[in-house]
């Protein structure tokens, strides 16, 4: 993927409370600060903790026409229900980042799809904050895709994290980096 032709459609999905919306917003903010065009669309149904949540992010060098993602280039799934719901929509040659802490099965996907299997909850727990699993997964995704770095996301985090949660900035930043390192070690580009 050249920077010139960058047009990346991403779906992030999981259950309510996993920080799906925050991960999407952070991705969008990071892309904007890097001077890219971006659209971010959250699901806005009656989502509650434990229900399903997802968001669609489109990142491109040029103006983005459609903010609604039908077939994503990349999919980040944080639980099994989301994997079942979205995996079949992935484009050929796409990227699946899945949270193996909560997904125990191997998905049946087209051979061309690359899988980054990250034990996001476990890695987050190692850092002392299970809630940061979303940041681990996002860090792994960014490292793997390479058009933005986990560090760029770390720098944008304060913009999207509500001020009352700013005491969690260090652990979330560590989680972004930890996800990035995991991807680098286990699934090199």
């Amino acid at each position: 993927m050249t920077a010139e032709g960058l047009y990346e459609e991403i779906v992030i999905a999981g259950f309510g409370g996993q920080g799906i919306i925050l991960a999407g917003r952070l991705l969008a903010q990071t892309a904007m600060l890097a001077g890219k065009e971006v659209t971010y669309m959250p699901s806005y149904g009656a989502e509650v903790r434990g229900g399903t949540a997802n968001c669609m992010v489109v990142i491109a060098e040029k103006k983005i026409a459609c903010p609604v993602v039908g077939r994503p280039d990349s999919l980040i799934v944080m639980n099994k229900a989301s994997l079942n719901k979205f995996a079949q929509r992935l484009k050929k040659g796409g990227l699946l980042v899945m949270n193996t802490s909560l997904i125990d099965s191997e998905p049946q996907l087209d051979e061309s799809i690359e899988i980054v299997a990250v034990p996001a909850d476990e890695l987050a727990v190692e850092l002392g904050s299970q809630k940061s699993a979303n940041m681990v997964a996002l860090g792994a995704y960014l490292q793997k895709r390479g058009y933005l770095s986990p560090d760029a996301a770390a720098q944008a985090l304060a913009d999207v994290l509500a001020e009352r949660h700013h005491k969690t900035l260090p652990v979330n930043i560590a989680a972004l980096h930890k996800g990035g390192e995991f991807a680098q070690r286990h699934c090199p580009v």
Binding site: T39, Y40, M41, P67
Partner: peptide
């Protein structure tokens, strides 16, 4: 509409 109200763009 709901998309335009909810979606974010720079």
């Amino acid at each position: 509409d709901g998309i335009l109200g909810q979606m974010m763009e720079p």
